[in-house]
Design a protein around this nucleic acid. Structure first.
Lengths: 348, 348
DNA sequence: GTCTACATAGAAAGCGCTTGCTGTCGCGTC
DNA sequence: GACGCGACAGCAAGCGCTTTCTATGTAGAC
């Protein structure tokens, strides 16, 4: 029914071993033989059996990419960059590797389960993107899993996630704290003193780091923070919209709203506009990430640009062993403040 | 070194066969035995060898999802919906399947290569999203490949792609033509007579269908189309920006611009604003897809809403055999016109 | 008390491929 | 002219699992 290596061998009048060698190209095979084999492969329309070959060779060409939400361009952009480097068809690298993009939805259990699934497939490498969950128990479980993967020969790279020491993973972390600080600093310098902050979900490193950066800036300028000025939500537009209404209810005199990311900022803009406030005349708004749509907001969003494509590409190369890991196994990637139209001095 | 089934069997004092049966749960095993095995699995921290199991069982739990551009939410949303239904961890379906998201970048070769890779992995199912390339030769190659996949037992589902008869694939197509017509119809009814159209890349079914819908509407209203009014570009913001400048150069008197999709429309808005035109007072703008950010454009974008999540979910279920395929193996999914602030009658 | 039937466990034969080792040539070397 | 060696090709032993078929024990059935 399905054609196997042996069929090809028979047709080409060689042994299966030879066919395998031709296909893998890591053993001297006479040109004439090779051609005969290739011809047979073509005629029979032979397709290698991946599982069988993975079993025999004890290696696989699957690479796992874990993302929180594939529908979010933040992750989509990174996934795309990673994939372009791991050597799938058309990728820069040779070989033909399959990227397995796993959508965890931010759920700890799924994260773990996907890792097990990848371990089961004997993945060649795994790249984990985005912030981590801060629950101690989950973190321990994750670290143990990562350690095991690394021990089994799977290269593990973290992209935009804090280092997990002792796990053997390489980490490319984003300087969320520094970026957050710079952003709020910018607002303070413009003259803002009452700043609302829409944070992401609690218990996530990204959320905490950005929030801490924000508070660093406030503290550095001797601004005492009102607890009412911080609201937690999800990393999406809807959440930004609702959180802003809440913020406005709590303190209608806010002159600036800093959002956990650009999507949240967009929601904030919508809420502010609906409440009759002009941006940035009445209230300034700032985002984070600088996703492609941010520049199209009206006014264009002031935000912190994270080099997602570059970081993803680098993570991909490291995962493939095509780039030296950073010294100490960790590198911090900085963001860049992009000042645009959505921020201005208060009472314009 | 690595723990195998046999190790678990030895530890649990049973045969490998029994361990396998416990793990697969499709054969009667006494409760006490099962527990003993499970305990051994746990103690040894055993992880099944995916390739070995796929080889022996001649099945795999991989599901391929082909997308043009994973960084584009259009595809991200569909991929996410598909994945939530194919039964990965946390998905609605049982079992633990791994979704392999393949980024073709719109390249015919990559599309084909990925399909081969998936075939090699003996994927359980494959879902192809987005429009197809219209090149006859490529289409023939694709159809042959799909046919082969289907014959090998891989379920093939097309989501947002025209049917490929004779390939055994189930198709959920978007009614791009109808949506395009409705959209332009709306503009015409508002009084527009000089409409620019920014089409997607040529040779793609999505591009052609939407454009044809546009022309259907023009024809239905006896509006003769000026060839200068159509520009082709990519499906991204940048392209929309440039195409709009070109359109304006060709005919500064246009009163409406219809874009191939929302991203393109956003670029168009930016270009129009920069040229000093107000939206919709001077020029109306319309998009397609209704991606999440469209409602946040200022003014909010008039567009055609495509039920990406619903369609993706349905495609996922069909791919998993959990939903009856539509009669004839094909169903057309309609879009819904969303009239918002970016369109109004010409000359305010 | 023997017989049939069912529930459960094991033996063993692969699944299709890779690869270490073992030939077998043909040619250059002394 | 015998020998050594390099270049190829083949043999065969797995890789770790699934599954058919068979064996065993036990419980009803008569």
């Amino acid at each position: 029914m399905t054609v196997t290596l042996a069929d090809v061998a028979a047709r080409a009048q060689v042994s299966p071993a030879t066919v395998s060698r031709v296909l893998n190209g890591n053993y001297p095979v006479a040109a004439s033989t090779r051609e005969r084999v290739l011809k047979a492969v073509d005629e029979l329309d032979y397709v290698l059996n991946g599982p069988a070959s993975a079993l025999a060779a004890a290696t696989s060409d699957l690479v796992g990419i874990l993302v929180n939400d594939i529908a979010d361009p933040f992750f989509g952009i990174m996934a795309s960059a990673i994939q372009s480097e791991i050597g799938g068809p058309g990728g820069r690298a040779g070989g033909e590797r399959l990227a397995v993009v796993c959508n965890t939805g931010g759920s700890p259990e799924r994260e773990l389960t996907y890792l097990t699934l990848l371990q089961r497939q004997r993945a060649a490498a795994v790249v984990l993107t985005g912030g981590a969950i801060e629950d101690a128990q989950h973190k321990a479980a994750m670290d143990a899993k990562l350690r095991k993967l690394a021990d089994a020969g799977t290269r593990v790279v973290l992209c935009g996630r804090p280092q997990a020491p002792e796990t053997g993973a390489i980490a490319l972390t984003f300087d969320n704290r520094g970026g957050g600080q710079e952003l709020t600093e910018h607002l303070i310098r413009l003259g803002h003193r009452r700043l609302g902050y829409i944070a992401g979900p609690e218990e996530r490193t990204t959320t905490r780091d950005r929030l801490e950066g924000h508070r660093d800036a406030l503290a550095a300028h001797g601004i005492e923070e009102d607890p009412r000025w911080t609201v937690h939500g999800r990393y999406d537009r809807r959440s930004g919209y609702e959180a802003t209404l809440e913020l406005l209810r709590r303190d209608p005199s806010l002159t600036a709203v800093v959002a956990a990311n650009d999507s949240v900022a967009l929601g904030a803009c919508a809420a502010l506009r609906e409440s009759g406030r002009r941006i940035p005349d009445d209230v300034s708004v700032a985002g984070f990430d600088d996703l492609p749509f941010s520049i199209d907001a009206v006014p264009a969003l002031t935000t912190v640009r994270l080099p997602l494509t570059e970081a993803g590409a680098r993570a991909g190369r490291i995962a493939m062993g095509r780039e030296e890991p950073p010294p100490g196994g960790i590198a911090s990637v900085r963001g860049e403040l992009m000042v645009r139209g959505s921020t201005a001095g208060p009472r314009g």
